[in-house]
Design a protein around this nucleic acid. Structure first.
Lengths: 191, 191
DNA sequence: CCCTACACTGTACAAGTGTCCAGTCAAATG
DNA sequence: CATTTGACTGGACACTTGTACAGTGTAGGG
């Protein structure tokens, strides 16, 4: 699934790639509020008009950067790692954000933007995370999966806003999953 | 705590009140993207310049509307209702949003905005919700409270974006709280 | 070698956002 | 009644954002 709003191949691909790379650099370099499509285009040595050809807005651009990152992580687990533990997977996702505090701050706003292109990416990212998550969860009622998903999303948001450390998300999620699993049709639950 | 950026009394109070009321009407009336400080000011029969005196941006204005609503709910429990059950309290908070889908859609963006005034209100709202929540929770480790807070925040966000019904939040939260509580001091699972 | 295609550019543009300020009006004060 | 205070107004302003479009340069097909 392409993050951009038109089909990309040949010469276009490298332009998009340069824009995405420049966006990440810019996120690291300046305050989130000072980032704009124009500033990223300048850093990528691309004209603003061209940048707007591929990305409808700053939010769309940033969401695309996140989408690329999440795809990399999700792909690494899609291969053949069925046995991966929940904390491992959760941590690999949260690490994406933990290692780039500016990126996570940016995407708490960007991913929620009221823009059709962003909505599309949001759904993609959500689906990818949900799949990675559920593949790592033991069998449990769907309501329990929902609860854990809620905690996962809330954790990312709270951490992105600085209200809790990213490192704590995996621990809290694992504890919750343990408890919800042990409650599944069985109240003695020693393993 | 005032939602506005200057002290309000006398004549000012009614202007602010009219703006907040008009903002809620406007939220209900138009698409979120079409709402602006100017459109709300017009509806309230106040000049844009005056509106900007009290609210720094559309995000600040909307956050103030939410803050007022949450305060009402939190106040109703602060009185003497120590015995209120978790589902009751959670539902009274989620109902604020469930009954105003447009408001909840608006505040998923507004409350996360990169604006000092919004950050102040966000902290206030977060503190009020956290206090209501923890007053309704049985004694449990702080990590368990964190997990439930994560699930609460994530639930509000997911529901606000339309990914799950508001009505389900209280149920999921209650289930999670039950399980986490029964695990407190009672090692039914490995650590 | 020409020529068509098209990604890209530069610039102009409309629309929107938040600020500033001189001026107005009403209410409180003397 | 005259004065003063300050909330409010209207409008101009600088700035940002996304779009439009005519023009340029280069790669691939005849």
């Amino acid at each position: 699934m392409d993050p951009v709003r038109r089909i990309v191949d040949g010469r276009r691909a490298s332009t998009v790639q340069r824009l995405l790379d420049a966006a990440l650099e810019e996120i690291r370099a300046v305050e989130y509020g000072d980032l704009s499509v124009r500033s990223v285009a300048k850093r990528a040595d691309v004209s603003p008009a061209t940048a707007y050809t591929y990305f409808s807005s700053k939010d769309h651009l940033i969401s695309s950067v996140v989408w690329r990152r999440v795809q990399e992580v999700a792909a690494s687990f899609a291969d053949g790692a069925d046995g991966a533990e929940l904390p491992t997977i959760v941590r690999s996702i949260t690490d994406v954000f933990a290692q780039e505090p500016e990126l996570s701050r940016a995407c708490t706003s960007a991913l929620l933007a009221d823009d059709p292109e962003v909505a599309r990416l949001r759904d993609e990212i959500g689906a990818a995370c949900a799949q990675s998550l559920s593949s790592a969860l033991p069998p449990m009622p769907s309501t329990a999966v929902d609860s854990i998903t809620m905690a996962f999303v809330g954790g990312l948001l709270l951490a992105g806003m600085g209200y809790m450390p990213f490192e704590a998300i995996a621990d809290r999620l694992n504890e919750t999953a343990e408890q919800l699993r042990s409650a599944d049709g069985d109240h003695t639950s020693s393993q």
